[in-house]
Design a protein around this nucleic acid. Sequence first.
DNA 1: TTGGTAAAGTTGGGACTCCAAGTCTTCGTC
DNA 2: GACGAAGACTTGGAGTCCCAACTTTACCAA
Lengths: 246, 246
Amino acid sequence: MTGNDPVYLRVVEELRAQIVDGTLPPGAPIPSRAQLTQRFRVGETAARHALRVLAAEGLIIGKVGSGHYVREKSVLYPLQRCRYIDHDAPFAADMQAGGHRATWDWRSDQTKAGRDVARRLRLDEGDPVIRTRYVFRTEGRPMQLATSYESGDLGRAQPFPEEGTNGRKSLLARMSAAGVKITDIRESVHTRVPQPIESDLLDLPTGVHVLHVERTHWSGERPVETSDIVVPGDRFRLVYSVPMGA
Amino acid sequence: MTGNDPVYLRVVEELRAQIVDGTLPPGAPIPSRAQLTQRFRVGETAARHALRVLAAEGLIIGKVGSGHYVREKSVLYPLQRCRYIDHDAPFAADMQAGGHRATWDWRSDQTKAGRDVARRLRLDEGDPVIRTRYVFRTEGRPMQLATSYESGDLGRAQPFPEEGTNGRKSLLARMSAAGVKITDIRESVHTRVPQPIESDLLDLPTGVHVLHVERTHWSGERPVETSDIVVPGDRFRLVYSVPMGA
DNA sequence: TTGGTAAAGTTGGGACTCCAAGTCTTCGTC
DNA sequence: GACGAAGACTTGGAGTCCCAACTTTACCAA
């Protein structure tokens, strides 16, 4: 059982163990391809494959011309760099960067609802919707992509107004101005491989997945806005906090 | 810019486009290595690498001896196969499989709090905690791993009792029996590469990440239970739904 | 028609090799 | 001492071959 599994796994497992237990601390150089072939008595293919697997796992990072290095912990787990929820007002605050400079960019346009958006907003395919695409940056680095859809009949024409830095507050303001009261927010979270555009915009290294949040604001039985929020899976934690009201 | 990027990317991009636009529908066979080398005039390495990338992205699946096939949509997005939250009682119900047979297995023991658990339960490292490890299965397939920690001083000795199939209900029962009222639940969600044990227990194909949920039950200002919940990232959606109480 | 076998095709692991582009270090020159 | 070029080393892309294990298909015999 242990004797006949692939040889590259032996290399992966030994290196991984050393990284996890701290023998190889963050920043430490990993033996090069040439060194691995000697040390483990394997071919270059196996050594190379082992390094690729560890890189895909996010444990090491390869610098061409220099070598592979153990990834810094801070990159792996920058805990709560961005809180998703505010304790006092659950689900009320949008993403806020924890103490870092943050900027939003967005662009609104009108388009037709696709199948997915139509389902989520209870519209028919092809109905007009207002689409707003956001890019959220902290320290200049893109950190979050969001695309928001509102059904086109909700009486709102002006481009994004007041409260420029907070998409949600301005949404709530517009909604209440239109007489719509948000009663309920539903989110669905899953993880997947980034699409090429996303890994481009978010500047993702290979092997990093994204968290995809589908958030829908409801007014009674009617969905009024839905958005797709995409963040790098290794740099973010979504934090939910909900009081258990009796 | 487009002329000198890796040739394997050409293969990846063409196949990915055909999969996304439906030219290659779910279940359709992907050209084999040999065919790809001919069609794209590339070496075996490039063809093989392209297939590996697409497999890692979850778009295709390789069957040894047979070929690569476009993955079924249902496998990619089995939407709400498992709801995480019940609409009537937000954060009250634990995972419920949507109409599928589901079983829990668990084992409790007493251990010492590690650094992470100590921080989350506001204990000191080394303090006694009760650890319960769960494996959740639907249709026989393991679908969720959970490890729950309660501080050891919460007056509970008997092995798991009543309400066997629902870890959370039994927790609440025990808690209320001990006079502890849960006021608040906080969760933190991120995604990462599965640890070897996890990919083993959850039977994960390579390239699939996991969603890691850290859930803590609070009683006022005091955390009383914390758990790590690990689910396959490609088969699950966590669904949160919270009414916006005035 | 059915059963079984053989051949052809496919994946996944592995070994070598070559090369371009980048980094690091060393050493000699100014 | 400062500077710069050369050489050694490293990664990542790419090609070729080989092999074991497995699936699919085709064909032949009962």
